[in-house]
Write a protein that binds this DNA or RNA. Structure first.
Length: 224
DNA sequence: ATCCGGTCCT
DNA sequence: AGGACGGGAT
């Protein structure tokens, strides 16, 4: 009966009602989802789409196809996504991980437990908590919730982020309010991203038009 | 000019 | 805690 849980479930309800089903993550295969998760780090998804198109055109949107590329060619293909030098290293580290953990086949990770796999993913250089959870939830259908900059911003505006709150604290506060379900974790994060682009933008948020405006502390005094 | 489904290094 | 990484869209 916490107000925090009520607000969190209320956000989910409001966005689900307004936006409908999301069918996330954009990506045709689990491997493409994982690659997209790395490429979109602090980067506009629109730019990532170009990099993904380049990789597909080069036959590099499979484990073996990507492995066959030289670093300089890979850099050129993913350049539109920005940070192309560090991201080339991160994709290579991820392939190294797949090679030793799963015989270069991401699907082989499905047999693993979330509890065992998550820390191993986090040990890969360039894969932090958000990227790890994105891969686990959206590529492997495991019940872990993705927290991102959109989540922090939206939840802060609703008074749900306390001073110094870190990734795992916010994550736990959200999953505590929801059924432990990969379907709900998947959908709620997708709705947060869509709603953030639609209404909860960083500058000039469109609170008056937001389906969640009624959940604000004081709906009469809107942010900015 | 500002912003972007972060993460690592110093 | 502060900085580096970066091209593309709005």
């Amino acid at each position: 009966m916490s107000r925090r849980g009520d607000v969190i479930r209320g956000l989910y309800e409001a966005f689900a009602q307004a936006l409908g089903p999301s069918r996330w993550w954009p990506g045709e295969t689990p491997f493409e989802v994982a690659v997209g998760a790395i490429l979109t780090q602090n980067t506009n998804w629109k730019n990532v789409e170009q990099a993904i198109a380049n990789l597909k055109a080069a036959g590099a949107m499979t484990e073996k196809g990507l492995r066959a590329l030289s670093p300089s060619v890979l850099e050129d293909l993913i350049r539109p996504a920005g940070y192309y030098r560090v991201k080339t290293k991160r994709l290579t580290e991820f392939l190294d991980f797949l090679e030793q953990e799963s015989g270069l086949d991401i699907e082989a990770l499905r047999g693993e437990s979330l509890h065992d796999l998550r820390p191993r993913l986090l040990s890969v250089r360039g894969i932090g908590p958000e990227t790890a959870d994105s891969i686990l939830c959206y590529a492997l259908d495991m019940p872990t919730f993705v927290v991102d900059a959109y989540t922090f911003r939206m939840f802060a505006r609703h008074g749900l982020v306390h001073e110094g709150m870190d990734y795992h604290e916010l994550q736990e506060s959200i999953t505590d309010a929801l059924p432990q379900s990969v379907t709900d974790y998947n959908e709620f994060h997708a709705l947060i991203v869509r709603a953030s682009k639609e209404w909860c933008s960083k500058s000039r948020p469109r609170c008056a038009a937001c389906p969640a405006r009624g959940l604000l502390d004081d709906p009469e005094r809107l942010p900015q």
